[in-house]
Computed example of a mutant assay.
Amino acid sequence: MADTKHAERRAARLAREITAFAGAHGGAEGQLAYIGQAGTRIVLVGADGAWGDLVAPTHDIAAAAAEKAGLTLREAFDGEMAAKVRTGPYEWTRMAGIQVGGPSNG
């Protein structure tokens, strides 16, 4: 029973964060990605191209949070969804630093 209440509270907290993200970015859609023992990543893409993610300890909690927030979920982070993402200088510099030995951001 305590585990169920904890899961419900965690899903509600994540749903509030999803709702806040969607509100700040003109709406949002998402995709759930299993990341092993760490849980499930909720990838968010705003209508304005902003993106972010949250991590839930289980797939069930991630799915419950998405449902509570009214988040439209995609089966995969496909080309159509990726095309909506807008990146800025931070992401490009960070990616270059990680991928090709370019400058890093700390």
Rank of each mutant, 00 (worst) to 15 (best):
I35A: 07
V100N: 10
A83V: 12
I61T: 08
W92G: 11
G30M: 04
R10W: 07
T58D: 02
A11N: 04
A11K: 02
G26V: 04
Q37L: 14
P103C: 06
G88S: 12
A82G: 12
R86A: 14
V100W: 15
L71H: 02
G52A: 12
A76Q: 13
A20Y: 09
H59K: 08
V43E: 10
F77A: 03
K68D: 08
T40D: 04
G106F: 08
L14M: 07
G27H: 00
R74S: 10
G70H: 09
A2W: 07
E8A: 15
R86P: 04
A38W: 10
T40R: 00
H25A: 05
M95V: 08
G88R: 12
D53Y: 01
T40F: 03
G49H: 04
E29A: 02
A66S: 15
G27P: 00
P89L: 11
I98G: 05
V45M: 03
A11T: 01
K5W: 10
G106V: 03
R41V: 02
I61K: 01
R13T: 11
A62G: 13
R9A: 14
A24D: 11
A76D: 15
A82E: 08
F21S: 00
G39P: 02
V55W: 03
G23Y: 10
R10E: 13
E8L: 15
A15T: 06
H6V: 14
V45P: 00
T87M: 05
T72I: 05
G97T: 06
A76T: 13
F77L: 08
Q99D: 14
E80Q: 12
G30V: 03
E8S: 13
A56S: 11
H59V: 09
P89T: 11
A2V: 10
H25V: 05
A50R: 06
I42L: 07
T87H: 06
A50N: 08
G101E: 04
V45Y: 00
A12M: 06
V85T: 09
G106D: 13
A11Q: 03
L71Y: 01
R41A: 10
A47D: 07
E67R: 14
K5D: 13
Q31Y: 02
P103D: 09
D53I: 00
V85Y: 02
G30Y: 01
V45R: 00
G102D: 09
A7R: 06
T19N: 03
Y34I: 04
T93S: 02
L32F: 04
Q37R: 11
A82H: 10
A65V: 09
G101S: 08
R10G: 05
G70W: 09
G101W: 08
T93G: 07
T87W: 03
A15L: 02
L32V: 05
V55A: 07
D48K: 10
T72S: 13
I98V: 15
D78L: 15
A2C: 04
L54G: 01
A83L: 10
H6E: 11
D60R: 06
H25E: 02
G39C: 03
